[in-house]
């Protein structure tokens, strides 16, 4: 590809999605990433990978659902391993009222009774009397999805330079897309980190087709099947910017949830404990902010994979109009609008 007109800083889900959206529009783009390898230091590496716009409606602004819904098709088109089997929401008997409340605040679900649950997830037969099934939702393995985006970029001859720390002001390009997440806070003073913790376990004794959310009074708990007997259990949300290992309290809560979902998780192996900080603006919604030739695309909070496509397309729109202004007389080559 020609000399890049646009440099994307950061190769997490925000940066790679933005770069791909730009490349797909024929804009010459390059990605630089501080980490030495894909996923290193990126909080999207720790993500759950649920594409659950309607479930998220229970606790978020309507915008998350409206902007998030198209992401399912976006990912399915670019990452064929995206699993479109819906998601399931259950509650322990004592939190039964929470299920009704969850239903009242969400949409596009079906109530399932015990038999209905067993049909969807045979391993959960007899464990819950009622559940909410969101048939249109999807999930993906975030790490494989990031790798797929990187491959697609390579296929379009987009370079990703790892191990390069670049601040937006020093980037030599017509436009710069800053997707550094929390590392961009010196330019975005209202950005904050919200700690999240997750655990990956392995067991051959339980099999799930789709993410299962378990309503919990404190933590939005979910268990996502990752294939090969792996399950990701997430995720705490703590208004703290402490990095560092998972706390005992959080681990206990997360593991308890898995155990309550199915006792066989009691025998599972703990493969990984992870913690990172989600970048968030005060309204917990992503934003694209322009300052000069720099666009800051940030604040994906707990909706990295769900909202990155919308953020990327919005960013690409902004880059396109910026470049058009600069070359107002000469038309851009290969310009294409989605």
């Amino acid at each position: 590809m020609a000399k890049p007109t646009t440099i994307v800083i950061g190769a997490g889900v925000a940066g790679l999605s933005c770069a791909l959206a730009l490349a797909e529009r024929g804009i010459a783009v390059e990605v630089v990433e501080r980490g030495r390898a894909l996923g290193e230091g990126a909080c999207s590496w720790m993500a759950g990978g649920m594409l659950a716009p309607w479930c998220e409606r229970a606790t978020t602004e309507p915008e998350v659902a409206t902007r998030g819904a198209p992401s399912i098709a976006w990912w399915a088109e670019r990452f064929p391993e995206t699993v479109r089997k819906g998601s399931l929401v259950v509650a322990q008997a004592r939190d039964g009222g929470d299920l009704a409340r969850f239903a009242a605040r969400t949409e596009r679900f079906e109530w399932r009774d015990a038999d209905g649950i067993a049909t969807l997830e045979p391993d959960l037969a007899g464990r819950f009397r009622r559940a909410l099934f969101f048939p249109d939702e999807a999930h993906l393995d975030p790490r494989r999805a990031l790798a797929a985006l990187a491959e697609r970029l390579q296929a379009r001859s987009v370079t990703i330079r790892f191990g390069v720390e670049l601040s937006p002001g020093d980037a030599l390009a017509d436009s710069v897309v800053d997707c550094r997440g929390l590392a961009a806070r010196e330019s975005l003073p209202d950005l904050r980190g919200v700690r999240g913790e997750m655990i990956v376990v392995r067991t051959a004794d339980v099999s799930l087709q789709r993410p299962v959310r378990m309503l919990h009074p404190r933590i939005p708990l979910y268990i996502v099947p990752r294939g090969n007997g792996l399950f990701m259990i997430g995720a705490t949300m703590i208004e703290s910017e402490r990095r560092g290992p998972v706390s005992v309290r959080s681990a206990v809560e997360l593991l308890n949830a898995a155990y309550a979902l199915h006792p066989a998780f009691g025998e599972a192996e703990i493969v990984e404990l992870g913690a990172d900080l989600r970048p968030a603006f005060p309204d917990n919604l992503p934003q694209v902010r322009q300052s000069g030739r720099v666009l800051h695309a940030n604040g994906l909070f707990r909706h990295g994979f769900l909202l990155a496509p919308a953020l990327a397309e919005r960013t690409a729109d902004a880059v396109q109009s910026m470049l058009q202004l600069e070359t107002s007389h000469a038309d851009l080559p290969q310009r294409r609008r989605a």
């Binding site: 703590i238 703290s240 910017e241 402490r242």
Partner: peptide, 16 residues
């Protein structure tokens, strides 16, 4: 306590 972590880890939220 609930906001977690020792020292000033919750500073962003507290400042808010």
């Amino acid at each position: 306590r609930r906001e977690g972590g020792a020292g000033r880890a919750g500073q962003s939220f507290w400042s808010f």
